[in-house]
């Protein structure tokens, strides 16, 4: 039964694309009809999200480093002053 539905859907998609090919420029309509386009979108979104998350992590670590350095320099300058005293 499910196979039949798929078959009919496929036929329909093929028909639609064929009908459009005759009159209009070719587009990836079949990919859309079969829903494979969502795979492409999902893959691209996942890759981009990973890159963005990575950049966020780098940003966080950098922030920590900046704070550490700021504290370090301030404390060291304090100790310098104390030494001078």
């Amino acid at each position: 039964m499910i196979n039949k539905i798929y078959f009919i859907a496929f036929l329909f998609a093929a028909l639609v694309t064929n009908a459009q090919e005759a009159t209009q420029p070719q587009m990836a309509d079949g990919m859309r009809a079969e829903g494979k386009i969502y795979v492409v979108v999902a893959v691209m979104a996942v890759i981009f999200l990973c890159v963005a998350a990575y950049l966020f992590r780098i940003d966080k670590k950098l922030k920590k480093l900046e704070d550490d350095l700021k504290n370090n320099t301030s404390t060291s300058s304090v100790t310098d002053k104390e030494k001078k005293k």
């Binding site: 420029p25 979108v41 979104a45 981009f48 963005a52």
Partner: peptide, 20 residues
Amino acid sequence: ILYTIFLGLLGSVPRLDILN
């Protein structure tokens, strides 16, 4: 950019020769 990934691939575009 996520928005452009979703709508850029799923949204409707004009049908043009050569560019497709």
